[in-house]
Design a binder for these strands. Structure first.
Length: 592
RNA sequence: GAGGGGGUAGCUCAGUUGGAUUAGAGCAGCAGCCUUCUAAGCUGCGGGUCGCGGGUUCGAUUCCCGCCCUCCUCACCA
C-alpha cells in the first residue's frame, strides 16, 4: 500500500467516513484529531467525547462502535498504525516502525515537501511589505525585527507556493523630511552625499530638529511647511530630498546585504505622490471621507473607537490640513496600486504592533472604498511584532538617546562567533573562520529574534541575542555540521548509502523518525498565523532528537542494514534542518 | 475612557481549535559523560497552587464573567 504523506489527514478522513454508519454520530462529526504526547501515541482523536455527550451515550462504548465500523470498512493497516481506546474515550493512533520506515524511504527530499506545501498557498499572488524603514536614520537594534521577521514570513509563504512580490515600502515622504530639511537649513549645513559621515550628520541633524520642533510648536509648523513645499515640487527641497534618500538607501543596502535580504521592488511613499489625488477624489465621491478641522478624514461609526461620536476622536486622516499627504494617503494609494499593478490576492504588512490602529483603519477604509468602486478586495493581513525595549524598559528610538546600532550588533555577533570557531576548530583556514563566523553571528541574531512569538515585546540584551548554546541557531547549525561530517568521513554524499535501510528500531531512532514526520505539521502551524517561532520550536526539537540519537546510536557500524538506515535518518535530518533554517533566513555551514 | 500585548520554574520563554498518573524547553544551579561519526553536544537531578476570584464542563493554563498588575496606541509622526 502507498505511504501517506500526512497520516493525520488520512486518519481524520477515515474516521469521518466510519462514523456515518454508527448511530450516535451526527453527519458533521469532527474526530478532533491532533498530535499527541508521544508517550501515548502519535495522534489522538478526542471528538468521540463530544459526540457521546450530545448523544448521551457512553463514550468508550461509542468509541469501540466507531472502531468496529472502521474495521468493517477496511480500516487501517495494523502493521502501520496501531489503534486503541484509552482514558475516558480517546482513540489513540500509533505509527509503527514499519510506517515510519516507509515514510522515510518515500519522502526523501525537498521537492517532495515543497510539492506537499504548495497546496497551502499555490497560485496566490502575494505582495509582502517589509522592512519599510524610515529614511535618514541609521539602523539600530530596533530595526532587526522587520528585517528578520519579514524575511522569514516571505520565505515561508513562498515555500508554500505563493507567487511573491517583496516590496520595500520605504518612508520617504513624511513629516520627518520636513523636520530634517528644516534642521539642515537652520544649521546652515551643506550635505555631501559622498561623505562617509553623511548619514551620521543627517541623524544628528534629525535629532536636533526633532527636539526643537517638539519644544516649539512654531518650528513644528515650519517643518510641516517644508514638507508641504517638497510635496508641491519646490526645486530646492526636492534636490535636498533626493540626496538624503540616496545617502539613506545606500546605508540600508549595506545592512540588507548582510542579512541576505533582497527586495523585488522599492516603491516608497514618494512613488505614490501623484496617486493620492485619486484617493481623495474617490473617497469623497463615495461619501467615505469628509472635511474635519480642515483635514480630510474617514470615520467609521460602526466601530465605537473610530466613530465621529467617540469620546476621544480618532479619525483616519487621509489629507492633512495644509493639503499635504500622510501615511494614510499613501497607504491607500499603495493598496490600489498593488491591486491594479500586481493583481494581488493577498497583501501582508510586516510592521511594529503600535501601528495596529492604523492598519485596522486602513483595512476598513480600503474595504469600503473597493466595495463602493466594485473592485476586488485582496486579503489584507497585518503581521505585527512587539517592540524591542531598551534597558530602561522603553522602546528604542533614534529621536532620543543613543541606541545600539544594528551594524555594531552584527559586528559583535560576528566577532564572538569568530573567537568561538577559532577556539573550537583551530585547524581551519583563516578565511573559513571568517566566513563561518559571519554566518553564525547573523544566524544567532535572527534566531534569537524569531524564536519567541512575534507579538511579544522583549528587552534588548547582548546575552540574549548572542547566545550560542541551547535553543539557538548555532545549536541547529551544529546538528547539520555533525551530520555532514559523518557523510564526509564515509566518503558519501548526503542521501547516499541508504540502500537496504531497515525500519527504525532503537528508541532514539524511533523518536527521531517520528520527529521527522512532524515537519509538515510544523509548516502548517507556522503558516497559519505567519508565526515563524513555531518552525523554530520544531527545528529545535528535531535537532534535540538528533542529538540523542547521535549519542546513543553509532552510524558508521559494520552491519550494512543498520548503517543504511542510520544514514537514511541522518540524511533526512539534515535535509529538513537545512530547509527549515533557510526558511528562517539562515544559511547552514559545512563545518564549524 | 476605548482598543491591543503580556502576567506559566530563580531568569528568558513555548504550550496548535479545552483533554489523559509526572504543564514543557533554554539559561542559571548540582551530578555524570570526550583513545571510536565535531562536547556549540549528551544523560540525570532539583525547581511551578499556570496573576486572583467565580462560572460552564466528565475534564480548564486554554472558554465565559469580574477584579488586580504591567506595557503600547488614541487629530494631522510613520
Amino acid at each position: 500500500m502507498s505511504v501517506w504523506f500526512n497520516p493525520a489527514r488520512e486518519i481524520d478522513a477515515l474516521l469521518r467516513k466510519a462514523a456515518t454508519s454508527v448511530p450516535g454520530f451526527e453527519a458533521d462529526f469532527d474526530p478532533e484529531l491532533k498530535s499527541s504526547d508521544p508517550r501515548h501515541a502519535d495522534f489522538q482523536a478526542n471528538g468521540v467525547l463530544a459526540a457521546a455527550k450530545k448523544a448521551k451515550a457512553n463514550p468508550r462504548a461509542l468509541a469501540s462502535a466507531l472502531l468496529e465500523s472502521l474495521r468493517t470498512e477496511g480500516g487501517v493497516d495494523e502493521k502501520l498504525i496501531q489503534v486503541e481506546i484509552a482514558g475516558p474515550g480517546f482513540i489513540n493512533f500509533k505509527l509503527t516502525p514499519v510506517a515510519l520506515g516507509s515514510w522515510l524511504r518515500e519522502y526523501r527530499d525537498e521537492s517532495k515537501w515543497r510539492a506537499g506545501a504548495a497546496r497551502l498557498m499555490g497560485g496566490r499572488k502575494v505582495v509582502i511589505d517589509y522592512p519599510s524603514p524610515n529614511t535618514a536614520k541609521q539602523m539600530h537594534v530596533g530595526h532587526l525585527r522587520p528585517i528578520v521577521i519579514g524575511e522569514a514570513v516571505a520565505r515561508l509563504v513562498e515555500f508554500c507556493g505563493a507567487d511573491l512580490v517583496r516590496d520595500n515600502h520605504i518612508g520617504d515622504w513624511g513629516t520627518n523630511f520636513g523636520i530634517l530639511i528644516l534642521a539642515i537649513r537652520r544649521a546652515g549645513f551643506q550635505l555631501d552625499a559622498k561623505s562617509p559621515h553623511a548619514l551620521e550628520d543627517l541623524e544628528r541633524l534629525y535629532k536636533e530638529g526633532s527636539a526643537a520642533t517638539k519644544a516649539d510648536p512654531a518650528l513644528m509648523d515650519a517643518a510641516r511647511a517644508e514638507l508641504a513645499k517638497l510635496q508641491a515640487g519646490d526645486a530646492a527641497n526636492t534636490a535636498l530630498w533626493k540626496e538624503i534618500v540616496e545617502v539613506s538607501n545606500a546605508a540600508c543596502q549595506r545592512i540588507y546585504d548582510q542579512f541576505d535580504l533582497k527586495s523585488d521592488v522599492i516603491l516608497g511613499e514618494s512613488f505614490y505622490r501623484d496617486k493620492v489625488d485619486q484617493v481623495y477624489a474617490e473617497l469623497q465621491q463615495y461619501g467615505l471621507a469628509e472635511e474635519s478641522e480642515g483635514a480630510l478624514v474617514a470615520w467609521h461609526d460602526e466601530e465605537p473607537r473610530f466613530s465621529r461620536h467617540a469620546e476621544t476622536k480618532m479619525p483616519f486622516i487621509i489629507r492633512k490640513r495644509d493639503g499635504s499627504s500622510n501615511y494614510a494617503s499613501t497607504d491607500l494609494a499603495t493598496l490600489l496600486y498593488r491591486l491594479e499593478h500586481f493583481k494581488a490576492d493577498e497583501i501582508i504588512y510586516v510592521t511594529d504592533g503600535r501601528q495596529q490602529d492604523h492598519f485596522h483603519q486602513l483595512f476598513v477604509t480600503g474595504a469600503k472604498w473597493f466595495k463602493a468602486s466594485k473592485r476586488r478586495l485582496p486579503r489584507l493581513r497585518h503581521v505585527w511584532f512587539g517592540t524591542i525595549l531598551g534597558e530602561d524598559g522603553k522602546a528604542i528610538k533614534t529621536k532620543s538617546g543613543d541606541p545600539v546600532r544594528l551594524q555594531a550588533l552584527i559586528d559583535e555577533a560576528t566577532e564572538r562567533a569568530y573567537q568561538e570557531v577559532k577556539k573550537k576548530n583551530p585547524d581551519l583556514p583563516e578565511a573559513e573562520h571568517r566566513s563561518i563566523a559571519k554566518a553564525i553571528g547573523v544566524a544567532a541574531l535572527r534566531y534569537a529574534d524569531l524564536s519567541s512569538s512575534r507579538t511579544m515585546d522583549y528587552t534588548f540584551s547582548w546575552e540574549k541575542l548572542l547566545a550560542f548554546e541551547g535553543n539557538t541557531a548555532p545549536y541547529l547549525m551544529y546538528a547539520v555540521v555533525r551530520v555532514r561530517s559523518i557523510f564526509r568521513k564515509s566518503g558519501l554524499a548526503v542521501g547516499q548509502g541508504e540502500e537496504g535501510a531497515t525500519d527504525p528500531e532503537t528508541p532514539t531512532e524511533i523518536a527521531l523518525a517520528r520527529k521527522l514526520l512532524g515537519f509538515t505539521a510544523a509548516l502548517d502551524s507556522a503558516l497559519e498565523d505567519l508565526r515563524p517561532h513555531h518552525l523554530c520550536t520544531y527545528l529545535h526539537e528535531l535537532a534535540a532528537a538528533y542529538g540523542a540519537f547521535y549519542a546513543a546510536d553509532s552510524v558508521i557500524v559494520d552491519e550494512p542494514a543498520v548503517k543504511a538506515r542510520r544514514l537514511m535518518l541522518c540524511s533526512r535530518t539534515t535535509a529538513i534542518l537545512e530547509v527549515g533554517l533557510r526558511l528562517l533566513g539562515i544559511e547552514p555551514v559545512e563545518r564549524m
